[in-house]
Simulated scan of single mutants.
Amino acid sequence: MKASAREADARVKNPDPSIRAYLIYGPDRGLTHERAQTLVRAILEDPDDPFALTQLTEEDLKSDPAGLADAMAALSLTGGKRLVRVRLTGETGSGPIIEIIKGLESGSETAEAVLLVESGDLTPRGKLRKAFEPAKKAITIACYADTSHSLESLCESMLKVEGLQLAREARTEWLPRLEGDRALARGEIEKLILYKGLRSQRAEGDDTITREDVEAVAADQGEAQLDAVLAPTLLGLLAKADSAYHRSITAGGSAVGILRALQRRLDQLGAVHAAGGNEGAMARSGAPRYGPQADAFKRQLSLWRGRRLEHARQLAFDAERAVKRSGAPAEALVGDLLLRLARGAAQMGR
């Protein structure tokens, strides 16, 4: 089956029990990741239960092609539903996935788990879409860049939680800047909410976001400061990364903001790899195209790919979860994450 754009979000929020395999793909890796996360939370009672969720990469499929079938057949040790999540950059390593889909359709595969495949953009002629789309027990969900209407809905729903609304001139000025990547858009909306203040922090009646507020936290104002932290981290320059992070925090920067920026950068690297890793892919992802920043991005691209990139994404996700759930200060948790990634990049670059 193939989900329409209109029903895509409903499909992941309220999954059909008859669907045993999902292919969530598209050039907007932020939206792809968001919908995959929504599906995981909708299927599993505890998404953090390692006995309920098995995560694999294309490197895992290539090194152990039978591992996917074993994971799909395994029973949950704690009872309840199980899900196997596979993250790909494209068609590479998709052979075992296609065999699972064939088995589900023929009835020869008695899978205990639901299969979730998350990938970059795929062509209609590709093997994965050809396997999923005709299948009755599988579904594809495409993730393309948000329209102005869907961005407006996302923005309004997030602001509504904190009792905020956009003034008309702010709406006209700001929404076009968010187009292109769901993760970037969500991060910018969160940044604006933090700037304006949570419901419990604001003065009574201060619930309208003006154009002046938007200009104060515009995405391009501070990207250079964030890149001063991210670039040395992802290039393995430990001393520079540590120094830049502490300078940013001392100057009033947000550890959570840096973590969000790191997640966006990792997603951006993944999107470029998925689109071919060439100059055109970099341009479409919004990566810098000229000068020292472009050179640094290309070096990051060469270091972070495949399994290494997926591991970095998982570490960033774990850090975000720890920030939300633990009593430890965000500054310490994010600082530790940055040093771990910098050490890893330094080892890869030797």
Rank of each mutant, 00 (worst) to 15 (best):
F132D: 03
E112M: 13
R168Y: 11
K127M: 12
L184T: 08
A69E: 12
K81A: 15
E162T: 04
L178C: 04
A135G: 09
A71W: 01
G180F: 01
A170L: 12
R82E: 06
S157F: 02
E118V: 05
A66D: 15
T123E: 11
E162I: 05
L104M: 08
R129A: 00
K81P: 01
E169C: 09
L77F: 15
P124L: 05
G93N: 07
E109T: 10
G80D: 08
T123R: 08
K102A: 15
L75W: 12
A71Q: 00
S153W: 02
M72P: 04
S94M: 11
L77D: 06
K160G: 07
L115K: 03
L151Q: 00
L88Y: 00
E105L: 13
S148P: 13
A167D: 14
L154F: 00
A111R: 08
S76N: 12
P176C: 13
E99M: 14
R87V: 07
L77N: 06
S94L: 07
V114R: 08
A74M: 13
F132P: 02
L178R: 02
E118W: 02
V117F: 00
T172S: 15
L151A: 04
G95A: 15
H149T: 14
R125Q: 14
L122C: 02
L128F: 06
R125F: 11
Y144K: 10
S150I: 03
T172H: 14
G180C: 05
T78G: 14
I97H: 01
L128I: 10
R168K: 13
F132V: 07
A111Q: 06
